[in-house]
Each structure stands twice: as C-alpha cells, then as structure tokens.
C-alpha cells in the first residue's frame, strides 16, 4: 500500500491512575471491494481489518474493522496510566501489511 502514514497523539506525561486519551490517524484508501475498474473487473477489497494497541507489551485496546470502514480513519480511545513506557499501535490490512507507530508516556 503506497504512502500509508500513521500518526499518534498522546500526552507526554500523566499521573499514575489517571485516564488519558490516545488519538490516532492513519491514511489508507480502504478499498471496499465493491468498486469495478474500467474493464468491469472488481477491484479487490483491501481494508485495515485490525487495530491493536499495547501498553508496555500488554494489550489495552483492540478493534476488528469490517467493510464500509472509513478511509483515513481517526480513532481515539482512553487508557489508564500505569507505568512509564511505550504505547505501540498496530494496524493490519487485508494484504497482511502491518503499519506501526509508537508513542512514549511518562507516568509520575
């Protein structure tokens, strides 16, 4: 998938026990599988079908996406601050391609 870009926005620090918001955006065409090309052949479906976020290796958020999902999807979710460390966001699409972005958080 050419030119897939992901971005993440989190607060740089949070107090232990505090709930903070993680915002994510990925650019992806999300080919629906319903379109046909000029010759009448169906353009195969290629969408992101799974999103997972781990926090210091522990899965804190996971989502299965299906047909009709938005192109260039924005996803925001909340996480409870436990320890300082890394949030690892992974998007997987139908072709098996994996897109990844990390963010660091300091927990005081």
């Amino acid at each position: 998938m050419a030119n897939v870009k992901a971005r993440v926005k989190t607060p740089s620090s949070a107090k232990k026990g505090e709930v903070f918001e993680v915002k994510s955006l990925i650019s992806h065409n999300m080919e629906s599988g319903q379109r046909k090309d000029k010759k009448g052949n169906k353009i195969p479906r290629q969408i992101i079908n799974k999103f997972v976020c781990t926090y210091n290796g522990n899965e804190v958020f996971s989502s299965d996406w299906h047909g009709a999902v938005s192109a260039n999807p924005y996803l925001a979710f909340h996480v409870k601050a436990v320890d300082s460390g890394t949030l690892d966001l992974t998007w997987t699409d139908d072709s098996g391609a994996v897109f990844n972005k990390t963010a660091k958080i300091t927990v005081t």
Binding site: N3, K9, L25, A71, N72, Y74
Partner: peptide, 17 residues
C-alpha cells in the same frame, strides 16, 4: 470539528507531505 483539529483533519497528511 474535523477541519478544526489539525490532528484529525486527514488533509493535513497532504500538508505534511
């Protein structure tokens, strides 16, 4: 709201490029 948020506005990816 999507337009007003530079993070959420998908067109900002084109601006970055």
């Amino acid at each position: 709201d999507i337009q007003d948020d530079d993070f959420e506005n998908p067109a900002m990816i084109w601006v970055d490029d």
